[in-house]
Amino acid sequence: MKILVSVKRVIDYNVKVRVKSDQTAVDLTNVKMSMNPFCEIAVEEAIRLKEKGVASEVVVVSVGSKSCQETLRTAMALGADRAIQVETEDGLDSLSVAKLIAKVAQDEAADLVIMGKQAIDSDNNQTGQMVAALLDYPQATFASEVVVENGEAQTSQEIKVTREIDGGLQTLAITLPAVVTTDLRLNEPRFASLPNIMKAKRKPLDVKAPADLGVEVGSNVSIVSVTPPPQRAGGIKVGSVAELVDKLKNEAKVVS
């Protein structure tokens, strides 16, 4: 089985987000960037499937400017075999990204596409579902467990995926080729070792343009403004449980 994993370069999750003063976007100048945490989980899952002998090859793809090659190298340091960068401007809309990834998945004849459930910048939670729809593949989103029985899986074989849904868990059986999107508890990603980081520099990285893939990118959605969220005014400290209950009953009137 061949696995395609998509990775996105985003603002590091520990960085405090600041909105630009002209309210057009979030300020990304001189900000630490990293691999989207959900994508890290996707890479980890693919590598584990390869280590178990279930997958034969793990290919990573990223859509964006040259700087996302750094993220692809990280994925290869973690264990991916080779990488494809689709060179575009950064911040392309989800549907365009989905069309590009779908085309790469087709060209690569990937049996399984693993993607993060959402990127922590745009928080859309939609690209994986869109890739699946464009290819008419089944999907298992928000995965917390992926089970492949009987060794190496191939096209037309079923895999079982447990999903985190509101109120609990759901298990689906989906037939390959398929798309899986990762939730937080699927696995704990490893760290790249120094020798592997060095080795990753020599792994193949192809660069393609949207035109090479025959995909036209663009969106009808425009940003009107990006503003900081309304600040919540801090409240008061109470000295005792009795005072707290009194305030809740008589001041906030949320407890009767």
Binding site: D121, N220, S225, V226
Partner: peptide, 15 residues
């Protein structure tokens, strides 16, 4: 909301 609610985007679509 975007960026985990740390920024609020207003968007217009002509779809």
């Amino acid at each position: 909301p975007i960026y985990a609610g740390n920024a609020i985007a207003t968007v217009k679509t002509t779809d």
